[in-house]
Design a binder for these strands. Structure first.
Lengths: 210, 210, 210, 210
DNA sequence: CTTTAATCGAGACGGTACGTCGCGTCTTATT
DNA sequence: AATAAGACGCGACGTACCGTCTCGATTAAAG
């Protein structure tokens, strides 16, 4: 992200768009097909019909390539969905917090099970666990936007009196997404609609008896 | 875990205890010192004063070695703590669920920040995210025992009327540990005592106003 | 061959005859089947159903084993041929030197083409070229006895006036065997009866016109 | 020699001349210093300051490297000797066959005792004995040119009436070189000027009395 | 519309680590 | 005490990728 002083900084205006696209496609395809550890820079270059240097010129590491490829995939999907139908990219606000969050979590469950999404995002998550720089980048560019949606929706719910006003939404939202994240990352339990529905109910009403 | 048909299965009784220990020590030290990706089988062997084949004979991969080394480290720590003082290995049951869980989570926070623990467990978690077999093994042998302690404590609280009887403890406990896990794995927020205390309060009383 | 001072010198009387034979058989069979370089001590031991140490106890190297195995093969062949029919083990003396030597060389040609003989003796010759100790041992125990037969036959011919009396038989015999040896060792030409017959004629009458 | 179908055939024009030279030097030096069996590809690469792959890219085996290194050494020596003084690379033709051949054989004796020549050529000869492909290559590229010189000289002698016209020079020349070769390869006798002189005399005049 | 300089494809290069094979030594249990 | 079995420390194998470094051959911006 930061410009290195040692490197002459390549000229972005002359960059080959066709190569960039081919590299993204190759990287994503390989991660799906052979898995992240067996995805190599050489393999990406060969599959993309691109010189290795073209990759090293524009990215710093395998994880970097994949992160941008994955972000691009998201933007592409958003673009294809069109401005009208952008359902999964915001949290609906029908006034019923429980229903709205349940709906979004169900969509998330579907997404987690789509191999096109799962392979690269697992790879990036894994890399991020062990490489803090990648981890922070991953979180900032992929998780943070989604998290912000939850924060916004919770603030709205607070204003509507559906959520206690003294709660920190940054913490509250974790009751919805962290258990799901952990089951996904660490295989601590099955991932189903019933499960995510239960999470919402448990979280809203608390574990203690009323 | 499963006996491979192709391999002649070495004779466990003649195994060198001294080599096994040296390998564990070397693996853990290297992961702390140079990080998981730069920890190599060759490096472990060299540092342990052991032939590479001795590692390949008994373990299937770098992750396998580290997993057993880490489990052994845990057992060793438990043994050293002695049968009298086994504080972190159960959840206290004073009758006050909130206080008991807060105490345990504070201990967990400390542990997550201890480099001797952090480096290998991050490494294993990362590997597990991208390699399902390792992930399930990691969860079964490392996470599951801790999870079970929460299940037991929550059942006790249900009997005591402090937790609603109709809740599934396997889900309920995730409100305590999953948010912490996600902050640790994905840098989604700071990890402090105040934070874990808040988790317990939010979880018990729910997000919705009473 | 020389007793090493460092080694405790094993007790020959307790030696297992069955193992020795099995090792010889395995060594010879492997050299024929997979070639000398791919014949290993481990392979010989495994095929002979013998511990590796049993080989290391009694022999100093792969070449040593093979040399003894090959010598044993020769003795065995001689024993089987019986005391009556020991044709290839002496040079006949009919009074006609040319005929006698031609006959022996033809037998040698046959032997050189027998795979059971060729594989191990090539292996030993090769080893001997690069390892002087083995080379001298090979020559002393395998070549020298045959050479001596030629010396004797040539001396007899000298007495009979068929060979000039002032010649050194140690040199003269090389005109019969060295060209053949070189063609065999270095592929410098085809090996046929006509060729060995010609060698004898050329050698006896000289290259210069009479 | 033959293009393998499985390998993509590297681009010869981009080959590093400096690496090739360094590899030749290292290979020859190591064979002299530690012997052929203890000369390893890894050792050559390390000494040449070259990646192992650079060796595997251009040669098929240790013997291949050494063969080319040795041929190169010969060409280099020939180049250094210059076009004027190329004494050892042809057989003189003074009209006196005996004298000419004796002179060349004496030079050969000297060469056989030069360690810079002896170590690699023994190694290649040994390898060739046990590996027919290497053996034929060795003979074709190293021995054959020298053999041809003898053939030519003998033909000249035939025309001059010094050698019987009905003889096959390919066989006749072996009386000069094969006995020497065998003594060198198999330690069957000492190698001296007197010996090679005697070979020439015996060969020309024959073993039988005149 | 050239000119020209950066990017591109290709892939050779010096390296590091891989996972395997075989060495020669050793230890253990059996005969 | 020798044996079958095989674990061990060690070194080399041949392979896969790493990240750097030339090479022409485009190729798009500036002259």
């Amino acid at each position: 992200m930061v410009t290195q002083p040692g490197k002459p900084a390549p000229d972005t205006s002359r960059r080959s768009e066709r190569s960039r696209r081919a590299i993204y496609d190759a990287a994503l395809a390989l991660v799906v097909e052979v898995g992240y550890p067996r995805t190599t820079i050489e393999g990406i270059a060969a599959r993309a019909g691109v010189g290795k240097q073209t990759i090293y010129r524009w990215w710093g590491s395998k994880a970097d390539v994949l992160l941008e490829a994955f972000l691009d995939l998201g933007e592409q999907a958003a673009r294809e969905a069109g401005p009208a139908e952008h359902e999964p990219y915001v949290i609906p606000d029908t006034g019923d917090l429980a229903a709205d969050v349940k709906a979004v979590l169900r969509a998330t469950v579907d997404q987690l099970k789509d191999p096109r999404f799962e392979a690269p995002s697992r790879a990036l998550a894994a890399e991020g666990v062990v490489n803090e720089q990648v981890g922070r980048e991953f979180t900032a560019r992929l998780l943070e936007p989604s998290i912000q949606l939850y924060v916004d929706r919770l603030r709205s719910a607070q204003r509507a009196g559906q959520v206690r006003a003294d709660l920190d939404p940054r913490i509250a939202l974790e009751f919805f997404i962290s258990p799901l994240a952990q089951r996904w990352l660490q295989y601590t339990g099955p991932i189903t609609y019933e499960y995510t529905d239960a999470l919402v109910d448990y979280a809203l009403h608390g574990l203690a008896p009323r």
